[in-house]
Structures are given as structure tokens and as C-alpha cells.
Amino acid sequence: MSTLHYWNYPTEIFCGAGALDLLAQRCALAGMRRPLLVTDPGMLELPPLRAVRAHLDAQGVDYALFHGLSGNPSLDEARAGARVFADGQHDSLIALGGGSALDAAKGIALLSRDPHGLERFEWAQMLEHFPTLADYPALGLPALIAIPTTAGTGSELGREAVLTDTVQGVKKVIGHRELLARCVILDPALTTGLPAKLTAATGMDALTHHLEALFSPLHHPMSAGIAVEGVRQVKLHLENAVRDGNDLVAREGMLVASASAAVAFQKGLGGAHALAHPLGARHHLHHGLLNAVLLPYVLLANRSAIESDAARLARYLELDDASFDGLLAWVLELRGRVGIPDTLAELGLTGEDAALIGELALADISSSETNALPLTAADYSRIYRNAVAGKLI
């Protein structure tokens, strides 16, 4: 029996060791004649990029490479990529890497058809003008194939991109229904070289996505069900992936957990993301690591609204203590076992900008409006200071 899985949810997904071998075939089926391969500079000497390039070269695919990205890709970097896309007469995109490459590729795709797309389809504009997918104007965006090499952001299955506005020092969520990838390739062999620390941070990012989606007050039973199972997948596989980076079962399990999270968080995100976005934009810290540190502090802030759901989840996870306290203890234990710091102070943050971060977190309506509890800017400031000081109260 083949170990390669095929799903459509709602885009094509090929999951399993060796899935990369289908890339050229899927390019041809999508009519991709000259794709732009988007990745980040950190991938240039690593095996995943070499494997992808060798495959494309062997299959005679005409492509070019763009890697002008940072860890938190910016609006300007997406614009630079769009110029490369146009100058090279490219007709499609392949995104290889973590969330930075996937999000940048989406930004490039949008700009290739609408030079004002990053403004027109920013989150607040989307909410006001495009309440359903059918309301979006047809743009004919270029086909995109997404190949994640980390298991955290879930961007491969999302219609949104998170890009940093370096002038304002904030992250902006951009979205369009046509940004959904034409095909997603989840090949665990491409993630085996990910260092243990990044494996832990990205895996905890996936866990944060699932938990915040589950506890969002929006009613979306389908996404809630995926969130519950996604947490179980993290429980099954994250520690093994951190312990042994060559464990393909664990690597595949985490890819599935990460991709599933993008479906789960259609239900919404919450306070960890509302804080992580401005902290990452202003202090240039890894998004997944910020979520990993912030998660328990936000869970505690939301306790009164999530206790019953947390208890049900704890029962599903078969925790000894099937309660909010049991779930929180498991999150803290998991965080410690995979080497995540306890406090933001360990990341170099002092909390001196707590008032500003609180205001920016509240203004991040893509996350703050679906937090389990309605929080004020002062609440976010307090959570931030608690996370700096390590006050789990």
C-alpha cells in the first residue's frame, strides 16, 4: 500500500515521503510554464532547496529563484518580488520554506495582478468590503504551489499572508480567495534538517493556532473539530520530532498538524497572536517562538471563558487531570520539554513598551476580535508584562 496520501481540503494536498516527486507533474497540470521559485536566504545552502531545484532541472521546468526575504517578510520585499516576477515574465509561483516564503509568494501573486492589492485586501478592508468569498473580485491570480519546510504557520492552506509594514512597525494580514494554493506538497523528508529549536518553536505555533481557534467564540463546528484533533497530533508528534529530526512519522504528523491549523483557524485566532504580531514586527523576533512563550499567559487571561472547552479537550487528550488546570499543566510541561523559554525576558524583552504593545494588540482585529474574551489594551499590556516577568496568575 502506498504511504502517499491524497486529500482535497479544499486544495489538493499530497502528503508523505516522496511527495516532492510530483512537483513537476502538478506544475504541468496547472499550466505553469515559467514559475518563480520563492524561498528565503537561509534555504540557499540547505538540502530542501537543492532537492527542489534538482527535481525541476531534471524535469526541464523553466524557473528562476527569488530569495530577497527576511524572517518577517515585509510589504517592500513582496513588492521587490513582484518586480522580479514581472521582469522575468513569470506566470506562476512555487513557494518553498516556512511562513516567510509562503506569505511573500502570496504577496507577490496579489501584486502581479493588482499593484494596490496589499492595501485593497488588508484585513480591515476585507471585513468591510468582502464578507464572503463570493464577494471578492476575480483577479486571475497566478497559480501557486506551496511546499512547507517547517510545521508551524499553516500558510500553505490559507488564503491570507502576514506581511510587515516596516514604516509603521506593524504586521498586516492580507487576503484574497484566489491566494489559496493550487497544490500543497507535504513531504516530511524536506523538514528533517530543521534544527530542534525551530522544530519546537514552529510546532508550538501550530499548537497555538489550534488552541486559539478552538477557544474563539465564533461558531464554526467543523473548524472546532479539526482544532481538537490538531492538538492531539501535536501531542503525539512534537516531542518526537524535536528529539529525533529524522523521525519521518513525527515529521509528517507535525506537517499535518500545521496544515490542519490553517483550516481550524477559519474560526479565529486570539490574544497570543494579537500580541505576537506587534512584538515580532517591532523586535524582529520569531513569530512561532513568541506564540509559544505567550500561550499559557493568554490561556490564563481567558480562563473564565474557556474552562468547559478546555476540560473537554483535556478529556479527548486523555490527560490525567481533565480540567483547565490539567490542560494548562500539559502545555507548560510540553513547552519545557521541547526547550521553549518560560518568559519573554529570556528573549530580551523588558516590557517597557507595554502600553504601546497593548494598543497595537487591540488594534490587530484579525486576532483580537476573536479572542475568547473581549480584552482591553490595558489587559494586553498586563499579559505582556506578566509574560516578561513569568507571572502565571
Rank of each mutant, 00 (worst) to 15 (best):
S366C: 12
T164W: 00
D87H: 08
P278N: 08
L285G: 00
L96S: 03
L218N: 12
A355K: 09
L334P: 05
Y6T: 14
A54R: 11
H237D: 11
I147C: 05
A200E: 01
Q89N: 14
L334A: 12
D62E: 15
D205W: 04
V170N: 04
P131K: 08
G336C: 14
L110H: 00
M254L: 14
T350V: 10
G81M: 06
D103V: 04
R337G: 09
T153Y: 05
A64C: 14
A389G: 11
A58K: 12
L211Q: 04
L96P: 00
R251C: 12
G71K: 01
L93W: 02
G175S: 08
P142M: 07
T166P: 00
A206H: 02
L319F: 09
E359W: 03
G18C: 11
V184Y: 01
T199V: 10
R243T: 11
L179G: 02
P48A: 05
A377Q: 07
A109H: 02
M32N: 03
T192Q: 15
N302L: 07
T376C: 10
W7V: 13
A124N: 15
D87K: 12
T166H: 00
E12G: 07
H209Y: 02
V234F: 05
A241I: 04
G98I: 05
S100C: 10
A377M: 10
E318F: 02
L300C: 06
E77V: 09
E178L: 08
D187M: 10
G169I: 06
A30P: 12
T191P: 12
S366F: 02
E369W: 13
E346C: 07
H210P: 11
V52D: 05
T376K: 07
A105I: 06
C183F: 12
N72L: 00
L207T: 03
P41N: 12
I174M: 06
T132A: 15
N302K: 04
A64F: 02
A206E: 01
L139I: 06
G158I: 00
D247G: 09
Q25T: 09
S381C: 14
H284V: 00
V84H: 09
